Simulated scan of single mutants.
Amino acid sequence: MQAVFLRLTEAFLVNNVRLFVLTLVFAIPLGLLISMGSMSRVKPLAWLIKTFVWIIRGTPLMLQILIIYFGPGLMEMAFHWPRGSAGRMVAAVVAFALNYACYFSEIYRGGIQGIPPGQKEAGEVLGMTRGQIFFKVTLLQLVKRILPPMGNEIITLVKDTALANYISVIDVIMTAKEYTSAGLIWPLFATAIYFLAFVGILTLLFGWAEKKLSYFK
Score class of each variant (00 low, 15 high):
R41F: 00
I55V: 15
F79Y: 09
F195H: 06
D160S: 11
G84L: 13
L204M: 12
L19K: 08
G114W: 10
W186M: 00
A91T: 03
A122C: 08
M75L: 15
M75N: 09
L98K: 07
P44D: 00
Q64I: 04
S38K: 09
G58I: 05
F26V: 14
F52W: 07
V169Q: 03
L163G: 04
P149G: 13
N15A: 09
I170M: 05
Q64R: 11
E76C: 02
P60E: 13
L8A: 04
E76Q: 14
S168R: 01
T191A: 09
E10Q: 15
W186H: 06
P72L: 11
M75S: 08
L139K: 00
L74V: 15
V21R: 11
V53C: 14
G151A: 11
P72C: 13
L6V: 00
M174S: 06
K211S: 13
Q119P: 05
S181C: 00
I155C: 01
V172L: 14
S214D: 12
R109I: 11
A164N: 04
M39C: 03
E124T: 02
L33C: 10
A197K: 07
K120F: 13
T129H: 04
F79H: 09
P44H: 01
K212I: 13
L45G: 08
R41I: 05
L202S: 03
T138C: 06
R88Q: 14
V143E: 06
A46P: 12
P82V: 07
V125M: 14
M128Y: 12
H80E: 15
A162D: 02
V143A: 07
I55D: 12
A86W: 01
R57L: 12
S181E: 07
L8K: 05
V169E: 05
M150A: 12
W186P: 02
I68R: 14
E210Y: 02
Q132K: 00
L48M: 13
S214Q: 06
D171P: 03
T129S: 15
I56R: 07
G207A: 05
Q2N: 15
S85M: 10
G58E: 10
I185G: 12
E178M: 10
T129F: 09
Y215A: 08
M128I: 05
G87C: 13
V199G: 00
Q2K: 04
L61M: 14
L48D: 01
I170N: 01
M75P: 01
I154R: 10
F134T: 03
K159D: 08
F104M: 05
G58P: 13
D160C: 01
R41C: 07
Y100L: 07
E10I: 14
P72K: 06
W47D: 13
R130P: 14
A101E: 03
R109C: 10
I146P: 04
E106W: 08
T23S: 14
E106L: 07
F216S: 10
Q141W: 02
A164I: 01
I154E: 07
N152T: 15
L33Y: 01
A192P: 02
L61Q: 12
R7A: 14
T9N: 09
Y166S: 15
S214L: 03
R57T: 04
